[in-house]
């Protein structure tokens, strides 16, 4: 299977450039990305893994140092309804944001401190291109609530995603914007966003091809799995970027652990933590 093609180098990178050149690249990047997303990519899984990277950016913007491993741990080792701590909360926001279709009600539940009316206004923002609309969202949200970087980026990536034909938020800007970019205004911010979309799309496309290959491998070994519930477990692996065996609540704990080990042996799933206990598995 050929899989998604990487983003051509001229789209992914450029030196200092005027805004129209950056806008040309961001448009080309989104067009390429739309083709990739329409191909055989496990989209929920792809978005969930992108959400992890986006959360890492947002955690750093909040002045914290947790890396992706610590974020995963915080999310997966918190009992249902518990408080995963300041960094874990950001990852939880992101993974919920990409898991459900974009809606005012859904985003309102996630984004504390942002009024539903403002979420509605953000989603209806006008502008010549999706990237310009996303930049306007960042500027508006941060003008009202300067520290709401995570909310601003979730809303911006949601608006952007709608612009290139997605029903779910897809982290792109959040992969590549730098903390200082969020201090920019007007054309400077729009330029930073166009550049970030091209850079973010390059990462997203390369992740999409990795995950497409991994998903093909996983589907290929699925018929070899005899455990009851293996099919449902495979579906979960194709929608969540990391799982504890405890997530397979439709099988016994022991069976879930055996299945995960077997999938690792078959090379279809990776153990993500390198630990002997409290292991997390994912593609």
């Amino acid at each position: 299977m050929p899989g998604p093609k990487p983003l051509p180098g001229w789209i992914a990178r450029a030196a200092a450039e005027p805004i129209d050149a950056a806008a040309f690249r961001s448009g080309a990047a989104l067009a390429h990305l739309a083709l990739v997303a329409a191909a055989d990519v496990p989209l929920p899984l792809w978005r969930d893994r992108l959400a992890l990277a986006a959360a890492e950016t947002c955690v750093a913007m909040a002045g914290r140092r947790e890396g992706q491993g610590a974020l995963r741990d915080a999310l997966h080792l918190t009992r249902a309804g518990g408080d995963p701590g300041p960094a874990g909360r950001i990852l939880r926001q992101w993974s919920r944001a990409v898991a459900r279709p974009i809606s005012v009600a859904g985003l309102d539940r996630l984004l504390d401190g942002i009024a539903p009316e403002q979420i509605g206004l953000c989603l209806d923002t006008a502008g010549p291109t999706p990237v310009d609309r996303a930049a306007a969202v960042i500027e508006t949200v941060l003008a009202d609530t300067p520290r709401a970087e995570t909310a601003a980026l979730i809303l911006a990536d949601a608006v952007l995603a709608r612009g290139w034909g997605q029903g779910h938020a897809v982290p792109l800007l959040s992969l590549a914007l730098k903390p200082r970019d969020l201090g920019l205004r007007g054309d400077d911010l729009r330029l930073a966003c166009h550049r970030a979309v091209a850079a973010g799309a390059a990462q997203a496309v390369s992740l999409a091809s990795d995950l497409a290959r991994a998903a093909t491998r996983l589907r290929a070994v699925t018929p070899k799995l005899r455990a009851g519930g293996a099919g449902r477990a495979v579906d979960l692996f194709l929608s969540r970027e990391a799982l504890t065996p405890g997530a397979f609540d439709f099988m016994s704990d022991r069976a879930a652990r055996r299945l995960c080990d077997r999938l690792v042996d078959l090379g279809a799933v990776r153990e993500l933590t390198g630990r002997e206990t409290f292991r997390l598995y994912g593609l």
């Binding site: 909040a62 002045g63 999310l75 080792l77 918190t78 701590g85 874990g88 206990t277």
Partner: peptide
Amino acid sequence: GPREPRRGAPYTFVTTDVFLATFGMASLR
């Protein structure tokens, strides 16, 4: 907060909104 990924899986502690209110902070920032 979340449990720590090691023997005994000890619980961690996190501050609450009451903590913020008590010390006059709007956020941990």
